[in-house]
Design a protein around this nucleic acid. Structure first.
Lengths: 171, 171
DNA sequence: CTCGAATAGTTCGGCCCCTAAAGAAAGAAG
DNA sequence: CTTCTTTCTTTAGGGGCCGAACTATTCGAG
């Protein structure tokens, strides 16, 4: 799983079979292709988000808050949903609060907890950037027909099963 | 492109169509599925590499060096191939040299340059970990038939074209 | 009613990845 | 011999992420 700017050609990977008999050349090549593409897409995402003054991580937080702007979320809940520790969430929220995109509100029922809310500025930012964001995604996917997409998801699900299984046994 | 631990179901993405007419729900869902899986696989990779005392970035450097252990590489060349700046490469090499996995050698013909070589310890580390690494990859891909793999690569290539095109126009 | 356990959020120290800009040393070219 | 270019490093800084320790608060069992 080495990620060079240009991933090694299948022929090269096949040549490793002598040294590593267990290698699965076409599988390795396929996986590298996917990871290379995903990495590029995410890097392009970072560039896009940076233009709007945020990072990908911060964007995820904003999108989560946007899912239900009436109720407000607890940081620990957000950490759980996004899959980071509470410490990490504190850092993300610090940045977003500094930029006045979210606000922390005291909670009187349980004074240990706080709720996080999008500010007007935060809502406006999403309103401004999301159309471009979704256009970007749509452009990225436009070559894939509906059946291509179904196919792709189903192939990914096959890998996901194995990834989950490997996770279980701590591989 | 928001990455929650559990990506939003297609139905939810479809419901955004009211607010964002340009959204491509199945495309967005498909992309999220891929990015979610890639992120998980990479995270699992980090865990695996950590067990062997290195990071993914350092592993990539070692693999590059392993491709031709006779000649040695220049840091600037390595930075180029991997796709990072020379400053980043200096940092990666600092860590690897501290752990005695690589060594910097002076070059007498051109004293500005150095060449990087795997140490015996570095070679041994790869020898020890690569079989497990390739087993991991093989396990991950084992559900996909040869034709699945070809299909997957061809679908990814379609997206890659668009990603490259978007890159060009700085989207 | 009180005291220890559990919970929420934060802080701290630390690691990784990454960059741009500036600097040192050496080579190349006029 | 001066100037330009190249290579590598250093510096300062950004972001992401974690585990462990700390504070405040609430809850629950005795």
């Amino acid at each position: 799983m080495f990620l060079l700017r240009d991933i090694p050609p299948l022929e090269f990977i096949q040549s490793l079979k002598k040294r590593f008999p267990d290698i699965d050349p076409s599988g390795t090549f396929t996986l590298l292709t996917m990871l290379r593409l995903s990495t590029d897409i995410m890097a392009a995402g970072e560039t896009f988000f940076a233009k709007h003054g945020i990072s990908h991580g911060r964007f995820v937080v904003l999108m989560l808050l946007d899912q239900d702007s009436t109720r407000g979320f607890h940081p620990s809940d957000m950490a759980e949903r996004i899959g980071v520790t509470r410490a990490t969430m504190t850092g993300l929220l610090d940045g977003l609060e500094r930029d006045e995109l979210v606000e922390r509100r005291q909670n009187d029922e349980d004074r240990r907890t706080i709720t996080i809310h999008l500010t007007e500025k935060g809502k406006q930012l999403l309103k401004d950037m999301l159309p471009f964001h979704f256009q970007r995604v749509a452009a990225l996917m436009k070559q894939l027909s509906e059946s291509d997409r179904k196919q792709l998801v189903s192939l990914l699900k096959k890998m996901e099963q194995e990834a989950d299984a490997a996770q279980q046994i701590g591989l």
